[in-house]
Design a protein around this nucleic acid. Sequence first.
DNA 1: ATAAAGACGATTGCTGACAATAGGTTTTCA
DNA 2: TGAAAACCTATTGTCAGCAATCGTCTTTAT
Lengths: 264, 264
Amino acid sequence: MATRKHSRGGADAAISKPARKPRRSSRRPAGPARARLILGLGEEEIHQRMYDAVLDHRLLPGTKLKEVALAKLFGVNRSVIRKVLTRLAFNKLVVLRPNRGAMVASPSVAESRDLYAARRSIEGAIVEAVTRRITPGQIKALRALTASENAAYRQGEMRKGLKLSLKFHQMLAEIAGNVVLAELLDQLIARTPLVVLAYKGRGDDMTCSIDDHAEIIDAIAGGSAAKAAAAMTAHLERLEGQLDLSDEAEPATDLAALFYEIED
Amino acid sequence: MATRKHSRGGADAAISKPARKPRRSSRRPAGPARARLILGLGEEEIHQRMYDAVLDHRLLPGTKLKEVALAKLFGVNRSVIRKVLTRLAFNKLVVLRPNRGAMVASPSVAESRDLYAARRSIEGAIVEAVTRRITPGQIKALRALTASENAAYRQGEMRKGLKLSLKFHQMLAEIAGNVVLAELLDQLIARTPLVVLAYKGRGDDMTCSIDDHAEIIDAIAGGSAAKAAAAMTAHLERLEGQLDLSDEAEPATDLAALFYEIED
DNA sequence: ATAAAGACGATTGCTGACAATAGGTTTTCA
DNA sequence: TGAAAACCTATTGTCAGCAATCGTCTTTAT
């Protein structure tokens, strides 16, 4: 009955999963120019946005994700949102309950412990492989990455530092050369911020991990796979040790603001 | 949790075909009483059928999976098939190419090696945890499972033996008590038969794994986590050693026959 | 006043139809 | 006759609407 005004926006059918140009929509709907709805995005971009929203701690556990609201926000059909939510549910970032909708996952304490234990196993194996395969150039790249991370933390850019920290672990997986292990690690890394957010004070920083990263690199450069793996294991154990189930994080209710694009 | 049947007549509505003129007269009008279409199945059941079809080596790598054909076969809407294909794609059992459809995945040699390496890491960690936590009753259950597997192989029931072999690994993950590691192992186990099928002769049996399983149990019962992990690692290395990239498996073209139910 | 039962609104799930795309086939021109 | 361009069919991707379901609010009876 009600004719949707954005029905013409569905013309971009070129957007699909892999390797497609972003094609940022060039049409600017007249508006208050403070914040704007994000239109013309494809499934992959929407998935990336919500994925990043979780990694950046902008989407809190327990937040309800209504399909129509998200569809209007991103200017796409509900089916696209539904597909994105399905993908996020595969990655355990959201929980889908039949006929009850989707919400950001709230991992339990046991699941959090298991997650870190799994990361110790996988990243330990990754670091062992890295120690055997790494080249001097890659060591240099790792050191540069850690330096950037350190700088970001010193400048107070916690989000950037956190992203660089994740990138450190992902780069190790890449150097290890095992695509399967890299995929698994990606899944675990995606779930980690949710755990951190659920069981740790938001204001608490993770700067202690910086020294750990440098220590891991040193152990790798030292050539001892066992020591390198132990350094990584100790690092992850320290991260897990920071967790505490003190207060529950309150769900974010202002869903729209999370995905608006702020203008100058 | 009762399996929720389609209380709403989705199947009946899906059968009503929109009267397109069938240029191809090769359509089978009704069941010739030899095989029958599978109707009234839900998403979960369809997923399980296709999953089993891969595990039972009935779906060969490269087989194209057309949505409408599958939808008609299972008597459901295409969206259900699409969801199932999405789930299978997440498990890396099928590959989805944009606008080009889905096909059973054909893992590469490197990916196969990485897969077994990942399994060694994860299952090694699982076995270590198992050795620390296992109870006598669980040891007995493991021995019984291995005995069943052995019996199945001796009776020539290769499919049953293979499934029991997979269950052995999954039971170990369950005993380990780490749900995250168990999930990851499920993913890897789901991908393994595809690798085996791609790089190993179909007629070749996997009976050698039986002794390995018993050996693993003995090592676990012995109480040494290191030895148990070593036994599991050796087991997986032996499995990987059976692989050979000799002949390519030809894709199965008779898609329909794979899902028909044979009648007496 | 409390609790059970029913009605209402909001949201999800599903369906058939439409549009876009890719690959193969035919046609056309040199 | 060969290559390039245009058509054509088969298949996938998207859409808007409708039906079913869940949570909540209201009503009613004890």
